[in-house]
């Protein structure tokens, strides 16, 4: 999964962070466009949570919101043997251990938008408990892929898996955000993120993913 762009939208719909990781998007859109995209995503998200079908709302309890943990998504060494050779403990800020988290988690994004597929890209949204949204635009388009590439799984399953990977990945971005943005005394809440440390870490993670 190649990530093109990562957006962070605060709880009032403002864009606080945006980075392109390849040239395909960056050349076409300027920063103003991204601001518009961010607030549009925010409103569509709000609308989507309103038009969730009644039937789904009633049977809410039956829907499984638990996202399984997918090991080492976007981490330094997806290969454990390589890690053993290095023998260096991985430093993850205030997080202990080789990975940011090690268990499945419940998605807080219960009524809004989670995934948007188009011919050009796929968009994944991870919402935090406080209403912060992490948006990843991926160039991978599952719908167009021939069945041979996906393997034995049918399309629905593959999409589901991609969404779970994205959720895992964006949750890790959230962890990095908690460290390098929230613990920065010079950051003011709800304002654009200018921390170069955060930038570096996110870039590193996206690089590990692809």
């Amino acid at each position: 999964m190649a990530i093109e762009t990562i957006l962070i939208i605060n709880k009032s719909g403002g864009l606080i962070y945006q980075r392109n990781f390849s040239d395909t998007f960056a050349s076409k859109l300027n920063s103003n466009d991204f601001l518009i995209i961010a607030s549009t995503i925010h409103s569509v998200f709000a609308i989507a949570s309103q038009i969730t079908p009644k039937a789904l709302q009633i049977t809410q309890n039956n829907v499984d919101y638990v996202i399984p943990y997918i090991p080492m998504v976007g981490m330094e060494s997806s290969n454990p043997q390589q890690n053993r050779n290095n023998n260096l403990p991985v430093k993850l800020g205030s997080f202990k251990g080789p990975d940011y988290f090690k268990e499945s988690f419940v998605s807080w994004n219960k009524s809004g938008l989670r995934q948007l597929n188009s011919d050009q890209f796929t968009m994944y949204i991870y919402q935090t408990m406080t209403g912060l949204k992490f948006v990843a635009l991926s160039s991978n388009v599952l719908a167009n892929k021939p069945a041979s590439q996906i393997g034995n799984m049918d399309k629905g399953k593959a999409q589901n898996l991609a969404s779970q990977v994205a959720d895992n990945f964006l949750r890790k971005i959230y962890c990095v955000y908690c460290d390098y943005v929230m613990k920065d005394p010079f950051y003011s809440l709800e304002m654009p993120i200018k921390s170069e440390l955060f930038d570096k870490k996110v870039k590193q993670m996206v690089g590990n993913l692809s």
Partner: peptide
């Protein structure tokens, strides 16, 4: 090599002040 207390502060000038 890695001051733990100020490791999350961005901007080298800010960090050194802290």
């Amino acid at each position: 090599n890695q001051p733990p207390l100020t490791q999350f502060i961005s901007g080298s000038n800010n960090r050194i002040s802290c």
